[in-house]
Design a protein around this nucleic acid. Structure first.
Length: 178
DNA sequence: AGGCTCATGACTC
DNA sequence: GAGTCATGAGCCT
């Protein structure tokens, strides 16, 4: 993410410990607004835990429970049966793309062109890539399941290693790796 | 198989 | 309006 013109004032930030590291979820009044990948893998970073503020609303803790369950489920290669409400902010085109992404089942992939066709804009292949990069909630909105048409890895905001790892967890084998 | 060029849509400044 | 981009297809070597 290069910049964020949206200045979120008081998002509530909560950590999510998973087998892939500690993610950070941020909630607005409307739902899950952001999900960040673990910053680092060193164990010394998670000792402070400023969270567990007693003032966290029950609804957000409830959402967070759903987020944590869904996230772990996906990291295990499964498909969550329940999602928290997502407070996605973006253009109509971006929401279209993100919505199309959520229809990709775990273990399966689509190309950017496929997504473009799915949203009725078959030539907007590069724009689809842009929308994927703008996705504020990776993993839950499975932008990692989008590959280039020739099966190559494509790109990923959180780093290609992260994308490879996510795909590997779902049993997807990339041509370069296999 | 690898590399270059061009078309293309959305987004940012 | 020009530049950027997580593409895709075509055409070379």
């Amino acid at each position: 993410m290069k910049n964020r013109r949206l200045v979120e004032t008081h998002l509530i930030e909560l950590p999510v410990a998973t087998s892939a590291g500690q993610f950070v979820a941020r909630y607005s009044e409307r739902g899950l607004a952001e999900l960040n990948f673990p910053v680092k893998r060193t164990a010394s970073s998670d000792r402070k835990s400023p969270g567990r503020s007693p003032q966290i609303p029950a609804k957000i803790r409830n959402w967070h429970q759903a987020t944590e369950t869904a996230l772990k489920k996906i990291l295990a290669g499964g498909e969550p049966k329940h999602f928290p409400p997502l407070d996605l902010v973006g253009t109509a085109f971006q929401k279209n793309v993100w919505n199309a992404l959520r229809k990709i089942c775990p273990g399966k992939t689509k190309s950017y062109g496929e997504i473009a066709r799915a949203i009725g804009n078959p030539k907007a292949v590069r724009a689809v890539g842009g929308a994927c990069g703008a996705n504020p909630i990776p993993v839950l909105v499975p932008c990692h399941r989008v590959l280039a048409a020739n099966g190559k890895i494509g790109g990923f905001s959180g780093g290609l290693d992260r994308k490879r790892d996510l795909l590997a967890r779902e049993g997807v084998t990339l041509p370069s790796a296999g």
